Simulated scan of single mutants.
Amino acid sequence: MSIWKDAKTSLHTLEGYYLIDLDAPFTWRDCVMGNANVACGLEEGCRFPLECDTSFCLEAYSYINPKCPPLNITAKYGCKICAVTPLNPISKSCKLSKLTTDLMRFLGTDGHNPSTSVKYPKDAFGMKFVISCAPSSLLRSLPKDASGVAAFSWSNLAFPRQLQTLVHDMEDKFALCLPSSSKAPGVTFLGDGPFYFTSFPNIDLRSILSYTPMLRKHIPLPSLKTGSVKLSTVIPYTKLRSDIFKAFVSSFSIATKRIPRLKSVQPFSLCLKSSAVGSVEKGFRVPKIDLETEGGKNWTISGDNSMKRVGNGTACLAFVDGGLRMKDAIVNGTFQLENNFLFLDLGNQKLGLALLY
């Protein structure tokens, strides 16, 4: 499936319609719930609620956000509905809604090109995926054409794991490649490879990945004794806890001391003269940043993923101070993830990384 970057918000959407969220427990969209007395089906855009005693509902209840509205409508509806609270990860708002199903179709691939025929499913209408409907007011702050949020988390209700359950020969894995431009799409693959890109036509990307262990929600780094590292597709720039941020910026400042400084531009603190660090065509010539993962492997962040052009001849170090009370020591944002191939092997709990330029 294609991934598109919204030029205004810098957020990434699946097929241009669903914001990709690595934390969301279930997918939600702006849709209409039907009345059991009305004759309509999913193919007509009409959906009916799932009941509260289903395994899907019990899974959704394991992710209840305490900051969202209480699920106190069962007295009115009984067990005929599964009340949930879909969350907008950008505005941090949530609404009371109901769990339901929607029809989805997927294209297969041989690793080189998309299939010309639909592989999954083989029936005419599609596979039923569990989602939540939500009111259109919950779409505020999302990209203009977005109609909801696509869950790519560990939850069994997330897109990859639901498909893995429905298609029994599919591995519990998925890959993401977020585009850095709004003019050309990136891509996501659900399941295992092989993966061949035009820039590496003869190489299965799985063979060049650097792997690190992955735990639910966090990727541990041994050097961070009091925190953890997390990937996020809903914040634009990597956030560092204040003590880490200060040490990092200080080191980067020393390494670039010969490059002229310019006035800082919010939300960044260190900005340089862009003409002194490279051109648009050749990228930025600044020190590379290595994140050492467990096992001694490095995730290298190049200049194109560390420096942001902000206009007026200025380029800024695209990392921000997240304060001292961050739950995670580091939260990697989309700017640092773009043009990287991320292979999330949920079954074996490991993350594979490769830079695609």
Rank of each mutant, 00 (worst) to 15 (best):
S2I: 08
D6H: 07
T9I: 09
L11A: 04
L14S: 08
Y17N: 14
I20G: 02
L22S: 04
D23G: 09
A24M: 11
F26N: 03
T27I: 05
D30R: 10
C31K: 08
V32Q: 11
M33K: 08
N35M: 01
C40W: 09
G41N: 08
L42N: 07
L42I: 09
P49M: 01
P49I: 03
E51K: 09
S55Q: 08
S55L: 13
F56K: 06
E59A: 15
P66S: 10
L71A: 04
C82Y: 14
V84Y: 15
S93K: 15
D110W: 07
H112F: 15
S117N: 13
V118S: 01
K122D: 14
V130T: 15
V130R: 09
S136D: 15
L142F: 01
L142N: 11
K144N: 13
S147I: 14
S155F: 07
N156F: 12
A158T: 12
Q162W: 14
Q164N: 11
D169R: 01
D172A: 04
D172L: 06
K173P: 00
P179D: 08
S180F: 06
A184S: 12
G186Q: 08
V187G: 00
V187D: 04
V187F: 10
G191N: 09
D192Y: 06
F195Y: 13
F195H: 11
F197M: 13
P201G: 01
N202H: 11
S207A: 08
L209E: 13
L209C: 07
Y211M: 09
T212V: 14
R216K: 15
L221M: 14
K225D: 08
K225M: 10
K225I: 12
T226P: 00
K230F: 06
L240A: 05
D243E: 14
K246F: 13
K246I: 05
S250H: 15
S253K: 13
I254C: 00
K257H: 10
I259D: 01
I259N: 03
P260R: 05
K263Y: 13
K263R: 12
L270F: 15
L270S: 12
L270R: 12
S275N: 10
A276F: 02
G283W: 02
P287H: 03
K288I: 13
I289N: 00
I289A: 00
D290Y: 02
W299E: 02
R309K: 05
G313P: 13
T314Y: 07
T314I: 14
K327F: 02
D328N: 14
A329D: 13
I330E: 00
N332V: 15
E338H: 10
N339L: 04
F341I: 11
F341M: 09
L342Y: 13
F343T: 01
D345M: 05
D345V: 02
L346K: 08
G347I: 00
Q349E: 14
K350I: 07
G352T: 01
G352K: 02
